[in-house]
Nucleic acid binder design. Structure first.
Length: 460
RNA sequence: GGCUCCAUCAUCUAACGGUUAGGAUCCCAGGUUUUCAUCCUGGUCACAGGGGUUCAAAUCCCCUUGGAGUCACCA
């Protein structure tokens, strides 16, 4: 049985890095018919936890991830933590420390001055006397005084930490009685039966502390997989500016969940030369042991490429559905197939596609001088008039090919190249010099609208 | 600063002692197209540096350099 979990702190939204570790945990659990838990780490009683959890679930829903069971809030598990703290106290594996914050501060100051590592001096470790008056105590765990702690990591290998360098009797309960992060994480993961902890490698140096807790409580230590961070182009932690925004923002920008997930799974993981992974393939092929050890850089170009790939291979029905979010309603449009075929291969995102569609459906608001100069020459008017005439004479114009035949006949009759009619016609229809095939555009808007737009340009 | 991790094209990556170091994105060129995009073909570009080990090193070891993470009564 494999149990994984995603355990974000409530920041208000799910960002791209979080989604990646969530995805990997999800894949590994599902692949093994295991369980994927969602736990909100809100031990500091931040006010926004429930709303934040909902935001995460909403993002999960959009990309198609689904956690198992109910969402666990650490803030509602206080009693459990207190029990375990008491247990350690009873067993003499933890103790109360009456040192004040000021004293601690002073000690650290001193140590830093002596170029020593700031570290608690164990002054209350074996304390049996009467506590100082009116002091609230913190609870410290008895950490090993020497030797080393080895983290057996599925990604990084065995990582050895020397107790001397990193550990002291760290605080597991604050003076107000609330437990601290490293304690609750270990307790929760153990109690919830988490077998495989997949998380960012910024947690690697926390792991020895958590192992101390596991051992003190007699819990089995899970497997750890510390996955490398995602960096920006400067090699720094991803920030909002770089795209580490709310996952839902990707929906707004017109990315599809398939592309986003495919992009994320390929960051730090690969399977031979394969670039495209469906959810089914990810489930079949993913193994956290294959995750790379080094950090990777977030680059939008690849995401864009993947997104356009998925857009190109999407059915028009599905496209139509997704475009509604971007304000384009095509359900009852009779030329919907032609329209979508014309734009689906030219857009990187859905919002871009929505724009292309409106450029076709809405007549040009005007004509730019530069555009006219480049594409509307002296003979253009004559060509367009001839074309209009031919259009009026033609019968049964429905398909792009029907319109193409008309264009062809005019070109042949006049003994000119396609370019002579293409450029001015494109300006008339779209107001610009590039865009979808003209035969498709005309088939979409119909003869009347086509004639009208040509007329508008001629008399401009 | 201590500790830990990391190091292959601009970017994501393949190679798990033996390859002309492969694929993809980006970029460039050519073809296709009425235009742009798509698509097709081709091209440019990498083992951070230095020592070892070995018949043989991108791969194993050490050092240097560079980058990142972490060191709280934050999570």
């Amino acid at each position: 049985m494999v149990v994984t979990r995603f355990a974000p702190s409530p920041t208000g939204y799910l960002h791209i890095g979080g989604l990646r570790t969530a995805l990997l945990s999800y894949l590994w659990a599902r692949k093994n018919n295991g369980t994927f838990l969602l736990r909100i780490e809100d031990t500091d009683f931040s006010r926004n936890d429930e709303a934040a959890a909902l935001a995460i679930v909403e993002a999960f829903k959009w990309v198609g991830l689904q956690h198992d069971g109910k969402i666990e809030y650490q803030s509602s598990r206080l009693e459990i933590y207190k029990q375990h703290i008491q247990q350690l106290l009873n067993e003499g594996k933890a103790y109360k420390c009456y040192m004040s914050k000021e004293e601690l501060e002073a000690l650290r100051e001193e140590q830093t001055q002596r170029k020593e590592r700031p570290k608690y001096d164990n002054r209350y470790r074996e304390f049996t006397g009467t506590p100082p008056e009116g002091r609230e105590a913190v609870v410290r765990i008895k950490a090993p005084l020497e030797g080393s702690i080895t983290v057996h990591d599925g990604v990084k290998g065995d990582v050895v930490f020397n107790v001397h360098d990193i550990l002291d009797d760290f605080i597991i309960a604050r003076s107000d009685g609330t437990p601290t992060y490293n304690f609750v994480v270990a307790v929760d993961d153990a109690l919830m039966g988490v077998t495989d902890v997949i998380r960012g490698d910024d947690h690697l140096s926390n792991t020895p502390k958590q192992i101390v807790v596991y051992q003190a409580l007699g819990f089995p230590i899970p497997k750890f997989f510390h996955v490398p961070m995602i960096h920006n182009h400067d090699g720094k932690k991803l920030s909002k500016r770089d795209g580490a925004t709310d996952v839902i923002a990707y929906k707004t920008m017109g990315y599809t969940p398939e592309a986003l997930l495919n992009f994320l799974v390929r960051l730090g993981w690969s399977h031979g030369d394969q670039e495209i992974f469906s959810m089914v393939e990810m489930l079949e092929l993913f193994d956290p042991s294959d995750i790379n050890r080094s950090a990777s850089v977030y680059n939008v170009e690849k995401l864009d490429w993947l997104n356009s790939h998925y857009l190109k291979n999407m059915t028009n029905e599905k496209l139509c559905e997704l475009l509604e979010f971007h304000g384009v309603m095509l359900i009852s449009h009779d030329k919907r197939e032609i329209l979508l075929d014309a734009v689906k291969e030219r857009a990187k995102t859905l919002s871009e596609m929505a724009m292309l569609i409106s450029e076709i459906l809405v007549k040009p608001a005007g004509f730019e001088e530069a555009v006219l100069k480049k594409g509307y020459k002296e003979d253009s008017k004559e060509v367009l008039e001839k074309f209009s005439t031919a259009l009026r004479a033609a019968k049964e114009l429905h398909l792009p090919s029907d319109y193409h035949h008309v264009m062809e006949s005019v070109v042949t009759e006049m003994g000119i190249g396609f370019g002579k009619i293409g450029q001015p016609l494109r300006i008339a229809l779209l107001g610009k010099l590039s865009g979808p095939g003209l035969d498709s555009v005309m088939a979409i808007i119909g003869v009347e609208e086509t004639l009208e737009r040509i007329n508008t340009l001629i008399s401009y």
